[in-house]
Simulated assay, not measured.
Amino acid sequence: MSTFRALVVNKTDESFTVGIETLSLDDLPEGEVTIRVAYSSVNYKDGLAVIPNGKILTRYPMIPGIDLAGTVVRSTDPRFKEGDEVIATSYDIGVSHEGGFSEYARVKTDWVVPLPEGLTLKEAMALGTAGLTAALSVHELEAHDITPDKGPVLVTGATGGVGSLAVAMLAKRGYHVVASTGKETEHGYLHQLGAREIIHRQELTPEKIRPLDKRRWAGAVDPVGGKTLAYVLSTMDHGGAIAVSGLTGGTEVNTTVFPFILRGVKLLGIDSAYCPMELRRTIWKRLASDLKPDHLADITEEITLDQLPETLDLILQGKLRGRKVVNLQ
Score class of each variant (00 low, 15 high):
residue 4 F to C: 01
residue 7 L to E: 07
residue 13 D to K: 08
residue 14 E to Q: 12
residue 18 V to Q: 12
residue 18 V to P: 01
residue 19 G to S: 15
residue 19 G to Y: 15
residue 22 T to A: 05
residue 23 L to A: 10
residue 23 L to H: 09
residue 24 S to K: 07
residue 26 D to T: 07
residue 35 I to W: 06
residue 39 Y to G: 09
residue 41 S to F: 05
residue 42 V to A: 09
residue 44 Y to Q: 01
residue 48 L to C: 13
residue 51 I to E: 08
residue 55 K to T: 11
residue 58 T to R: 15
residue 65 G to F: 15
residue 66 I to V: 15
residue 68 L to E: 08
residue 78 P to W: 01
residue 86 V to C: 01
residue 99 G to V: 04
residue 102 S to D: 02
residue 103 E to D: 03
residue 105 A to Q: 03
residue 105 A to S: 15
residue 109 T to E: 14
residue 112 V to K: 00
residue 116 P to T: 09
residue 119 L to A: 06
residue 125 M to V: 02
residue 128 G to R: 08
residue 141 L to Q: 02
residue 163 G to F: 04
residue 165 L to A: 04
residue 167 V to K: 05
residue 170 L to Y: 07
residue 170 L to P: 03
residue 172 K to G: 06
residue 175 Y to G: 04
residue 176 H to E: 15
residue 178 V to S: 09
residue 186 E to D: 12
residue 187 H to G: 04
residue 189 Y to R: 02
residue 192 Q to P: 05
residue 196 R to I: 15
residue 198 I to H: 08
residue 200 H to R: 15
residue 200 H to V: 05
residue 206 P to W: 07
residue 210 R to H: 14
residue 213 D to E: 10
residue 213 D to C: 04
residue 216 R to S: 07
residue 223 P to G: 06
residue 236 M to R: 05
residue 239 G to R: 15
residue 241 A to P: 10
residue 241 A to V: 00
residue 250 G to V: 00
residue 257 V to K: 13
residue 258 F to K: 14
residue 265 V to R: 06
residue 268 L to Y: 05
residue 272 S to P: 07
residue 274 Y to S: 10
residue 277 M to G: 02
residue 284 W to Y: 12
residue 286 R to C: 04
residue 292 K to Q: 05
residue 297 A to D: 14
residue 298 D to N: 13
residue 299 I to T: 00
residue 302 E to Y: 08
residue 307 Q to H: 08
residue 310 E to T: 12
residue 319 K to E: 07
residue 320 L to M: 12
residue 323 R to A: 07
residue 324 K to E: 00
residue 325 V to R: 02
residue 326 V to N: 12
